[in-house]
Amino acid sequence: MMNTRRILPGMRISLSITLFYLSILVLIPLIALFTKASSLTGEQLVKAVWTERARAAYLLTFGAAAIAAAIDTVLGLLLAWVLVRYEFPFKRVFDSLIDLPFALPTAVAGLVYSSLYVKNGWLGQFLVPLGIQGAYSRLAIVLVLTFVGLPFVVRTVQPVLESLDAELEEASACLGATRWQTFTMVLLPALYPALITGFALTFARAIGEYGSVVFVSGNMPFKTEIAPVLIVSRLEEFAYAEATAIAVVLLVASFAMLGVINLLERRTQAANSSAH
């Protein structure tokens, strides 16, 4: 793109608005967070972020998020495949319903999920007798996180699958590959970047999720308490410094995830652009 600074107006005003806005809403609050965290001594910091309760919360947060993201990756691939490759009645309706978790307030998701899987709930009445506790348990957390993250993988894989050249599969068939070999050796590797991006997006979202989990988990320390819930309960005890320290741990994990996503996207883009 040519440099349009001399031709088009509004560089100063648009950049000023952008920088001012980002400073007020993003930079200054972030600085406040890290300043607060750094006001703790090393020992206090360790004590805040590395209690037994906090460790249990991290483990649950990252574990449940990873499991939910893995489930969503498998389900997302299947959904994307079905939506791209097959025709069936009400396909468009199903396709758009996949975005519902983006549009539905997480509190509503939490509320309804907690009611579905209890003993006399619509689904719980079948599952609880089998010993499957889909509410107020770790399983409940995984379930609701799976719901919240469902669209990410579908929406990252779908366009890639759509743009895959039919000739790749034909070439593979001509070379003697079975349909399964074509899937595992040709299609799946082409989808890996999208699948990994989708996984990372789901995982990042699940780490920070609060609204839905707080309804379904029961929030029992050591058992079903996730890190964001722990932050809130520290805040309610007015233990701001401790809450901040735990928040920093979460934040660093999320930023790392964001970094990975960006790196992947750039690599995929680079691969795509150099191939043409």
Partner: peptide, 11 residues
């Protein structure tokens, strides 16, 4: 997008 809403509130 990468910041947990709870952390955002805390900030």
């Amino acid at each position: 997008f990468a910041i947990s809403p709870v952390v955002a509130g805390l900030m």
